[in-house]
Design a protein around this nucleic acid. Structure first.
Lengths: 156, 156
DNA sequence: AAATATGCATCAATCATTGTTGCACATCAA
DNA sequence: TTGATGTGCAACAATGATTGATGCATATTT
């Protein structure tokens, strides 16, 4: 199963960022679950990690909900990734019987290699903030509805 | 489940490279399975992809087996990764109901982002060849058996 | 012809992630 | 104070891609 925790968390954060930019202070986990096409439980599991990292803040009780913990331009996609995936590496070595030059050393070698790949991914994600992403989404949206005011075609 | 196809394939290729450097022309899938601590079936599934990419060659019949398709210094880790994982991306977007600026565009946005991350990973893997890896394994091995000739301790 | 080895299809097992449910606790409004 | 709303969290079932196991046709060497 392809891992969708990062995509889900990112889409969640973008929803919060959009809501904030439109003057909506906070969203409930039920609203977020609806927007993500999933259930409040999964949302809360992700929120728990995001809250630990300070990326979101939640308020209890009636009228409560979730809001961004920092301004959208102070949260990078790398922050979201690290918060949700933690130290999880892209790959893990296969445990092999130690019998030769390769098998006795390849696990350590591979852990190191995976760490380099993890770094490479994180570097690409640290370049962009939620605010950047929101801008790009606006551009994509404008391109989707061509030229003039009225929308030409239904989205497929 | 963390994906171990790339690690397994890499360890397989390194075994072939080591065998070749030691004058062993080829290994059978059963031998490879033994070295990897798994079964010949999985090995052959991986070999099928590796063979399609020209990274290994197999000979049929009695005395047959698998050997590298090119010299070890002409095969990068990126070649192995692409052969085994194909176009598989690190992440896939979660399909969300299209209802707002974010939800209507985030899937395309995310596919693009994932492609950038995939590129970053592949770039790090293209720097190293199997021959480079084998050299590094030799260094690790030397570090593991300190100083003088006789081995001091059993590997754990 | 016999032995060995790959190639490939089918089927079951595994296991992290996802989805569901229930409930305690916190907060606001009337 | 009470009721409504919402988070936090634990337990459990469902899902689905990968792994593991088996059988057999085909190819090649001795």
């Amino acid at each position: 199963m392809i891992d969708v925790r990062f995509p889900t968390a990112l889409q969640l954060m973008l929803n919060l960022a959009l809501a904030h930019s439109e003057g909506v202070a906070q969203l409930s986990s039920t609203q977020l679950a609806g927007a993500l096409g999933t259930n409040p439980s999964l949302v809360r599991k992700l929120l728990s990690r995001l809250a630990n990292a300070g990326l979101v803040r939640s308020s209890f009780g009636r009228g409560g909900g979730i809001r961004l913990g920092r301004p959208a331009d102070a949260i990078t996609l790398g922050d979201v990734y690290s918060a949700v995936l933690g130290e999880t590496s892209l790959w893990a070595p296969r445990a092999v019987p130690h019998r030769c030059l390769v098998s006795s050393n390849v696990e350590r070698y591979f852990v190191d290699l995976a760490a380099k790949a993890d770094d490479a991914v994180l570097r690409t994600l640290k370049h962009k903030t939620l605010a950047d992403s929101l801008s790009e989404l606006r551009i994509l949206d404008a391109a989707r509805k061509p030229v003039s005011a009225h929308r030409r075609a239904r989205p497929t």
